[in-house]
Every structure is written in structure tokens, then in C-alpha cells.
Computed example of a mutant assay.
Amino acid sequence: MMTTIGAWARQLDPDGYFKPLAREGAAVSCPCGRKPHTWDLQLCGDCLCRAWSLHGELLAELAGRITYNDPDVDVCWSLDEAAVSPLSLTFRALDAYAPDEAPRDFRWVGLPDDEILALALAGASPDELLARMMSLLHFSLVSLAAHEVGEWFIVRGERPFDPHKLDQVALIEGGEDGLGALSLDMRYQEGAPLPVGGLLTRELAAELSTSARFRSGTEVVVKMGCFEVYRRGEDGVLRIQVRREWPRPQRPGRLTWEAAIGAVHRGLVEDAADRVAERLSVDGVRVFAPCNRSPRGLVPVHLDVMHEEF
């Protein structure tokens, strides 16, 4: 018997998860009428405590319906009034900067964001709250996966999309989102595919094949007309996960080295996001489709991976 996605999924915002940010001259946002936006927090301390006392039990119940089936990642919902962020992720992995050492525990903490509580206090339904919690968790998990891709993707001995790159505006290592030279735009809608048809020269294809390094268990086959991402399963067998034609070059001629590296990195991030979707469920039912592909009864996911110039 086929299990269908719950009605709550209709409440997912097609534009995905966007953390609310303060706007200059923003109007008062707190229900008590006393507090304007402060960066990305909407509630004053008194209203925050009131939201937890009124809705904390419901939010804990909703969080209990969400499952992420990855033995190396623990999802923690910080459901109390003292929490700076409603969500944090603890994961166990090899350190890309010390790959010969034993796996270590790392923590991935979300930015301060009280939107879920503000929505609850404003009268949002359980379905609306569950949808927002899922989009927050989904985006956080994909961001974590993209961060790991950036750490392990090495070309010519360097990380072209280093997630620890200094944010020149915020002056924070890795930026506020921990992605460094990368930005993610993830929406719950079908998007237009990228134009393809580029070709690599035989020399560039050979060099990329020999100089690129990836996380253990992942291999990339580079061809003149396309590339393929393979992932090793629990049975030890490599299986193709992503096959992409090279993007169409902006100018006539063969694809540049930088464009080829960007395309491979984008394919690796899409594969990592697909692994997140495979493991994330509500009430035991998978919700999200593979990135940029036909949803086939699942919620579509359009992922745009944007690189800074490098």
C-alpha cells in the first residue's frame, strides 16, 4: 500500500526557507507592541517565554514526527525559552583537514531565529508550524552537507569553494551560514534547467580527472561532454547518482577550467542534498524529491548553487 505525504506539506512555502532579517525602519513586530526587529529576532523576552509556555508542548510533539535517518547526524530541537536557536545538528565525521585521524564530533548550530515561535504566537496551525520546522531542518541539513562537500573537494591541491573562507562583509570565517564562497537557493518548486551543451577539451578533462579529490566513497568520472558522480553504497558497490552535461559556455568555444570546476562542485552538492532527502521523513514518509528532477509524487526541490568568483 502506497503511503502519501501528509496534508501539512501543502503549507510548505514554494520559496523555501528564508531566515527573516531585520529591515531598516521595520515596524514593531512583537505581539506586545513594544519591540521592533532586532537583527533576525522578532520577539521580546517576555513574549518569547509566553510563546514557549503556550506552544512548547505542541512544538515538541511536531518535532517528534520528524525523522532523519543518518547514524552520524543527531538532530536536536532546542525547545525551551533559553535557546538561542531552535535547531542544532551534531554529526560525527572524518576531519577533512586531518583525514588520517579518527572521526570526530562536530556541531552545526543554526543562527538565532525565533520565527517558528512567532508564527505559533500569531496563531499558525500545526500544519503550518510543521511545514516551517521541516523547511528549516531541510535547509540546515543541506547547508551542512554542502559545507562538507566544500571541505573535501580539492583541485590542484586547493579548495576552490572553501567553506571557511572569510566573509569580507561580516568578517566572519565561513560567513554567517558556514558556506564561505557558496550560496544556496533552495525552493519547493520545479525550476528551469540550466542550459547545457558545453564541451571540455581532452586536456582539461584529463587534468580534472587526475587532479580532483573528493570525500571517501565518492568518485567523479570526467568526460569531454559530461561528468558523472558515483557513490559507494553500504555493500561497497559504486553506483551512479548524478549525470550532468557540461553547462553551455557564456562565450563561443570550449568550457573554461573555472566553469568545469563549478559544474562538478554543483553536481556534488546536488548529490549531497539528494542524500539528505532520502533520509528525511515525517511520520515515516519521505517528503522531498531529488534536486532539479521530476518529483513523482514528492515535493519538488529546485536547488541553485551559486559561487563567488574564484
Rank of each mutant, 00 (worst) to 15 (best):
V155C: 04
R156L: 14
R156S: 13
R156D: 15
G157P: 10
G157N: 09
E158G: 13
E158M: 14
R159I: 01
R159G: 03
R159W: 03
P160D: 05
P160V: 07
P160Y: 00
P160K: 03
P160W: 03
F161G: 06
D162W: 09
P163R: 07
P163L: 10
H164D: 15
K165V: 15
K165H: 14
K165I: 14
D167M: 02
Q168S: 03
Q168D: 04
Q168W: 02
A170K: 07
A170S: 13
A170Q: 11
G174A: 01
G174P: 00
G175F: 08
G175A: 09
E176Y: 00
E176T: 00
D177F: 14
G178K: 12
L179G: 06
L179C: 08
G180S: 10
G180M: 09
G180K: 04
G180A: 11
A181E: 11
A181M: 08
A181F: 06
L182P: 03
L182H: 06
S183I: 03
S183N: 07
L184M: 05
L184C: 01
D185M: 05
D185L: 04
M186G: 06
R187Q: 13
R187P: 04
Y188G: 02
Y188R: 01
Y188P: 03
Q189L: 10
E190T: 14
E190P: 07
G191D: 02
A192F: 05
L194H: 11
L194M: 15
L194I: 12
L194T: 13
P195W: 04
P195M: 09
P195L: 11
P195R: 12
P195Y: 07
G197D: 01
G197M: 00
G197W: 01
G197N: 03
G197Y: 01
G197R: 00
G198V: 05
L199F: 08
L199G: 01
L200V: 09
L200G: 00
R202V: 12
R202Q: 13
R202H: 13
R202S: 14
R202T: 14
E203K: 11
E203L: 10
L204Y: 04
L204I: 00
A205S: 15
A205N: 07
A205C: 12
A205L: 08
A206F: 10
A206W: 07
A206T: 15
E207K: 02
L208T: 04
T210E: 12
T210V: 09
S211Q: 13
S211N: 07
S211E: 15
A212M: 12
R213L: 14
F214D: 08
F214W: 12
F214I: 09
R215D: 02
R215F: 00
R215L: 04
R215E: 13
R215V: 02
S216G: 11
G217N: 13
G217E: 14
T218V: 15
T218F: 06
T218S: 06
